[in-house]
Design a protein around this nucleic acid. Sequence first.
DNA 1: AAAATTTTCGCAAACGTTTGTTTTTTGAAA
DNA 2: TTTCAAAAAACAAACGTTTGCGAAAATTTT
Lengths: 330, 330
Amino acid sequence: MTNTTLKLLAQQLQISISTVSRALKDHPDISASTKAKVNALAQSMDYEPNAYAIQLRTQNSKILGVIVPAISNLFYDSFIASIEEESRSNGYALMILQSSHNPENELNNLKIFRQNRVSGVFACLSSSSENIEVYQKMNDRDIPVVFFDIVPKDNRFTKVRMADERCAIMAAENIIKRNAKKVLAIFGDENLSITQKRKAAFQKFMQDFAPKIHCSYVNAASTKQAEEFMKIYATKALKIDTVFCMTDEILIGVMRTIQELQLKIPKDIGVISISNGFIPNLYYPHISYVETSGHELGKLAFIQMMANMKGGKTLTELTVDAKFIAGGSM
Amino acid sequence: MTNTTLKLLAQQLQISISTVSRALKDHPDISASTKAKVNALAQSMDYEPNAYAIQLRTQNSKILGVIVPAISNLFYDSFIASIEEESRSNGYALMILQSSHNPENELNNLKIFRQNRVSGVFACLSSSSENIEVYQKMNDRDIPVVFFDIVPKDNRFTKVRMADERCAIMAAENIIKRNAKKVLAIFGDENLSITQKRKAAFQKFMQDFAPKIHCSYVNAASTKQAEEFMKIYATKALKIDTVFCMTDEILIGVMRTIQELQLKIPKDIGVISISNGFIPNLYYPHISYVETSGHELGKLAFIQMMANMKGGKTLTELTVDAKFIAGGSM
DNA sequence: AAAATTTTCGCAAACGTTTGTTTTTTGAAA
DNA sequence: TTTCAAAAAACAAACGTTTGCGAAAATTTT
């Protein structure tokens, strides 16, 4: 079946295409009676404007691109869900592509975005990617780029992220408050700036405010590794009494070990993590965590995007603040 | 900055637009030397074909639409990730919209898809939606619709889903194998066909093959409800020895209660669920589950979509088979 | 060297809109 | 009735491609 077009409507009504077009958008030049006729026919013929023709004519696509490392991720999916809502209520649709932490995919995705003339892109850097120039090129083409979560150091871009340092410090504060003696702090992939920031802030805070607490720092690249680190530090002579988990991935590994060793939370061991809350609430007692909300971040990112698209450049790095959520694990 | 177009390239090289166009797609009519020149210039001027112009001309959009109830969902996100991969490697991009279980949103999403002339749509019905006709309308416009997971009863459509009955039966089998005496089976939203199918199959199987096992059946609409049901049935006179969870949502609630009551798995209580595996593996011992893979389903859905787009209609209901994954909980 | 091919390229229309400009119609004022 | 302004509608160009068809240029055949 062929789609209804303005031309078709015009022919049926024996009027010109431009009149139909204007009638449909309630243009003052058109009389009420023709408007009524046009609308009625459009309705009955299921007229749907062709977005491609519109974009071609207006150079404005109403589509936003999103690049995430992975869609199936507890943090990113809530981020995506959030900007999807915002976008829809503002008349935009989303094109979502995953980089799978692969710079090559990232480039390909960007190309798809350019070809589809997206009006803007939200991007989360894949761990290794340092091909920032290609993003600059998008900016040059007046396609605003808003980085989120994992952002480049370069400050030519608009960035939104969690207040990573604050998150880490909040966790540290609560560890001190618990009166911990021996702490294991497990961080993520060493190459990520997010890891570096959190770790540096955490370490500094502990040294400054509780130098007597014995802290062990490790980096776990996977759940499995976290599980093993935990096994080592929870037994033997080391016997830690509190563990800090930088991500959900790590928390999951830690909790496996805790359950396996049948340690009691919070008596035998205190647990605190940085998370959006889903994983910590899976356990009993609920794990205390510093909240990083993909939802909040998404909202912020969208606001920044709109600002970028409307006015001139707003080259700022915004952060959404953290919040400590007490479970029963500390 | 203005985008590079065929016209621009043509002007620079003092040749016609059509020649440039053909050169770029390696058309045999064009000499090797001009091809070289054109490609070189296109390269240096960062030429990116305008997808909108192409679609307008060719009536073929290379975009697929996806409607899910929610993106942040352990099952759907893996489904999405899966078709995203498939799509990308086949030159398609994805437009993802969430219905949030709201029929109104669903309709709006469909409209966006029509306006963007997507080449096909993957749809998962939101619980209440019975406005199937609008999907039929898409089919009429030669936009194939592939339903997944929650599918309509109507068999004018292509559908892919988990083998729900098999899943339930497999779970039942393992419950019998465990020598359970008192079982609590918690199912999800009563209105969903998926719930009905699983429940019916489960009940029938238990009655047919183990009529002596005492089974209690309940429907929990949320994690919280599952948690409470579990609390009731695990204590009191009832004292069940095995619990079956139809979804991750339910499993989470059940596990909270189990941890709270400090029941030992599998000694005090056996647990089995239907899941994609993420949640069951969070616990120690790992929970045994019947696997429903969003990933697999995504692949299957994509294949069906391609078949639909290429050839004529393939009005079949395909299912991906289930697999029992033994954890330590039975 | 003319004729017949074959290669290579350009012309022009079309896809479905939007929008500035022009034309026609309408109705009121002169 | 004529004149004029306002209102309503039509015209036409443009957005960036693709593609059938015809034209020119290069090459081969007589």
